[in-house]
Structure formats: C-alpha cells, structure tokens
Simulated scan of single mutants.
Amino acid sequence: MTEKLTIKAIKELLIDITEETDERMIKLQKDSRKGVVSAIQSWKRQQEKALKLEADYQRMLEFEHNIWENDLAYIAGIDEVGRGPLAGPVVAAAVILPQDFHILEINDSKQLSESKRDELYEKIKAEALAIGIGIKDERIIDKVNIYEATKLAMIEAVDNLTIDPQYLLIDAMVLDLPIPQSKLIKGDARSLSIAAASIIAKVTRDRMMKEYAMEYPGYGFEKNAGYGTKTHLAGLAEHGVTPIHRKTFAPVKNML
C-alpha cells in the first residue's frame, strides 16, 4: 500500500505518527525507497529530540514537584539579568507557574536564541499565574553596589507579584524575605521556574536597552545590551559617558 504513496504523502503521514509500533510505521519501514528511508530516519531523530526535551523538562521540575508535594502551590522562580554591563539597569523577574504548565524548550535564557526567547516570553506571559518585575537603575547600582542592587530588584519583583508566593526558588541568591526559599547555584539550568524568570528578565531588559539605543546612539546598546563590547568602548571614547552608564564600573569610572 505504501509503495503507491508519494514521498511527500509519506512525510505528511509521518507527522501524525508518534509511536514506532504504529501499524502505519511498520508498513512504511518495509518501503525500500531512499526517500522513504530518509524520511523515517528524520522522523526518528525528531522523536529522539522530543524525548530528550521532555526528559529535560521533567528534570527541571524536580525542585518544584518536591515543593508542590508539601501542599505549597505557589512557587516563585526568581532570576536577574544585567549584573555585568557597563550601562543600563539590573532587571529581575519572579514567575509563578501553574502545576499543569507544559511548555518545552524553556532553559537558561543565555542558551537560547533571541527569537526563541521572544517566543517563549509570550508563552510564559500567557500561562504563568503571576509575573513580577523588579528594576534598579544605574543610580541605585552606583549607590549600593551591583550585588545589593540585584537583591533589591529581586525583592521588588516578588513584591510586584499579584499572588503571594509560598516558596521561592532563587538563582544563586538569598533574599531577606519572610518566605521559605532555596538558593540554587546555576538555578536557571536546574529549575523550570527560575529558567522562566530568566527569560522574562532577559527579554524585558533587552527591549529596554533597544529603546536606550535610540536615545543614545553610537554605543551599540541594541546589540550589546550595555556590555563592554568593542563597539560600546569605541562609543564611550567618541561620545563620552551617558546618564545610563554605571559610574562606579571601570572603564566608565576611569573616564570621569
């Protein structure tokens, strides 16, 4: 029967097949045409990728599952972006995901392309129970130092949640809040809630820096997000320090 199907028709048929034990797949595997063999091999690679994505997804929910099992439904994952740049704010996000949340490919925002971050950002915003954002600009950073400013941004993000969290999962930080919490080193690669927060924070800050790029052209903020790239340093040398530069960060400090 499959011998009469075109390669295009077989590829379309494979889209609906999810198990190798499917009778249609068993019949297709008897087809020796090179195009069919190639299509089946491609299908198998896609299935392996899907299985790995699901396995990674379940691994990143282990912390959440352990907490949910203790009748704590509202877990806020917290992460920040922007500790290292020479310009712009530090941005933190707190995200509470529902227990039936199931969006694959969520990972540490640094491991994702910009287009994938934007795609996941919209999906997370649509399905999260609550999202809080905290922003501390260069004035606060210069006043209290970047580490303390990061803490303040994270606390602000928690305060801006519309649901009171019962537990906090925080990327490499402990917050002075009366809420049970866990500090996870490299948490954005270990906890789905933290990874979701990292995406929200990253996209939020990148969009802010693109707006600053229009206000302060010549530094490449739209591409470097305020980090000390060659273009940024050349802009500093040519145009000087802007109001959004961190005055306590070298080399900005050395130019004042």
Rank of each mutant, 00 (worst) to 15 (best):
W68K: 08
W68A: 05
E69S: 12
E69M: 10
N70Q: 15
D71H: 14
D71R: 09
A73M: 15
A76L: 14
A76Y: 10
D79F: 13
D79G: 13
E80T: 15
G82H: 08
G82W: 02
R83W: 13
G84Y: 09
L86R: 01
L86Q: 05
A87R: 04
A87I: 04
A87P: 07
A87S: 11
G88N: 07
P89L: 11
P89N: 08
A92T: 10
A92M: 04
I96T: 06
I96L: 08
L97G: 04
P98V: 10
Q99A: 11
D100P: 09
D100M: 05
H102T: 11
I103R: 12
L104E: 07
E105W: 02
E105I: 03
I106S: 01
D108C: 02
D108Y: 01
D108M: 00
D108V: 01
S109R: 02
S109A: 07
L112R: 00
S113T: 09
S113V: 05
E114D: 13
D118M: 13
L120M: 15
Y121T: 13
Y121H: 13
I124H: 08
K125L: 12
K125E: 08
A126F: 14
A126L: 11
A126P: 14
E127R: 15
A130P: 06
I133F: 04
I133V: 08
I135T: 12
K136E: 10
K136F: 12
K136P: 07
D137H: 10
E138S: 08
E138D: 10
R139W: 06
R139E: 12
I140G: 12
K143H: 14
V144Q: 06
Y147S: 14
T150G: 02
L152E: 09
A153W: 01
M154K: 00
I155V: 12
V158P: 08
D159T: 08
D159P: 02
D159W: 05
L161Y: 00
I163F: 06
D164Q: 10
D164N: 12
D164V: 14
Q166K: 01
Q166D: 15
Y167W: 07
I170L: 12
I170C: 09
D171V: 04
M173P: 00
M173Q: 13
M173V: 15
P178Q: 14
I179A: 10
I179Y: 13
I179M: 11
S182L: 13
L184R: 11
K186G: 04
G187N: 06
G187A: 04
